[in-house]
């Protein structure tokens, strides 16, 4: 995948149509129940909530797709439709060619789901017993199941804790156990809802590396939601930006950078006079939006369609002679995403 676009048309690949994840024009409207039902059920929904507004995307096998967006953007609703815990109001969602609403039972054999909370584990049971429970429900049994459990626990790095109760594990280890559970039955699609929310940065890095290996080695599609921008960057993945139930961007991170990034330039001079002269020239010619200036340093974002050479070219001779360093820095992902979310939709 080399390109991405804002507010894309459905980007559905042929491979994904039969083997990966395909979501077409999916909307989800949570409607309030009638008054009696609402009173009895104490439903929190008082008025229509449009959680998803016609989203379409696909994730082919072997690809990792990061779903990113602020709270309420529609990430969890999308995942819940895929795993069959809620239904789309209109549109269709398919996994390996099976419909998520009508063929949910078959789909549940093909997916591995890791919820964001470790409460989905049975705390009093050991790691191995949790996986035996899950494995048996998936139709696995006997020596084959036990062998696979050990292999999977080893894969996620907690093979030595197989007999320990879940409540004795750290948050990071519980996250690994949840990942093991989602991988145990060799799913074709992994759906991970903030898998590293409770994990420290080192464990998070290891978890992400494991996921990258699994995606390529097992040729499975992985959908992952996360608020941690460092790990989204580390995934080098297909990225979907959601906002208000709509897709804001669907493509890869590099393409997003190409479209939206304005590199940051940092210049250092020997004298304050040179710094001042450079500041005047750069501001007058409109090549750099200066946002940081000290006696000897200048920094700012390059103007649109301006390159580093243009900056040097407009510097007065006095400043050029006094220039000590000039360096271009990639736009931090945080700023990049902020830029995308601030940009008006075309």
């Amino acid at each position: 995948m080399t390109s991405g676009e804002l507010m894309t048309e459905p980007r559905v690949s042929t491979a994904a149509q039969t083997r990966g994840v395909v979501v077409r024009d999916v909307t989800k409207v949570y409607r309030p129940s009638n008054k009696l039902l609402s009173f009895l059920l104490r439903s929190p929904i008082k008025e229509e909530v449009h959680a998803l507004n016609g989203i379409s995307f696909s994730v082919p096998p072997g690809e990792i797709c990061a779903v990113v967006g602020p709270n309420g953007a529609g990430k969890s609703t999308t995942f819940r439709i895929l795993i069959g815990l809620t239904t789309a109001t209109t549109g269709s969602a398919q996994i390996m060619g099976l419909d998520c609403e009508t063929e949910s039972l078959e789909i549940r054999r093909l997916i591995g789901w890791m919820p964001s909370e470790d409460r989905s584990l049975i705390m009093r049971l050991s790691c191995a017993d949790n996986l035996i429970f899950h494995g048996q429900l998936q139709g696995l049994s006997g020596a084959g199941l036990r062998k696979r459990i050990q292999e999977t626990l080893d894969l996620v790095g907690i093979g030595h804790r197989a007999k320990d109760s879940v409540f004795s594990l750290s948050s990071g280890m519980r996250a690994r156990l949840q990942l093991a559970r989602s991988l145990l039955h060799r799913p074709k699609v992994l759906i991970l809802d903030e898998p590293t929310a409770t994990v420290d940065p080192i464990a998070s890095y290891e978890l992400i590396e494991t996921l990258k290996h699994v995606a390529t080695d097992e040729d499975i599609s992985i959908l992952i939601s996360s608020h941690r921008l460092d790990e989204i960057e580390a995934l080098h993945s297909h990225i979907i930006l959601l906002e208000g139930g709509a897709i804001k961007y669907d493509g890869d991170l590099d393409a997003l950078r190409e479209v939206h990034t304005r590199p940051r330039v940092q210049l250092e001079f020997r004298t304050p006079e040179a710094t001042s002269a450079a500041s005047n020239a750069l501001a007058t010619r409109g090549v750099l939006e200066i946002d940081a200036e000290t006696e000897l340093e200048l920094g700012g974002l390059l103007a649109q369609d301006i390159e580093l050479g243009d900056v040097v070219a407009v510097l007065p001779a006095e400043a050029t002679r006094s220039l000590v360093t000039i360096r271009e820095e990639a736009m931090p992902l945080r700023d990049l995403l902020a830029a995308v979310y601030q940009k008006d939709q075309p």
């Binding site: 069959g84 549940r108 705390m123 429900l137 998936q138």
Partner: peptide
Amino acid sequence: DRGLFESILVEPIS
């Protein structure tokens, strides 16, 4: 209450 319900519902069981 424990949050196990959904993880059981996503298993391939009736």
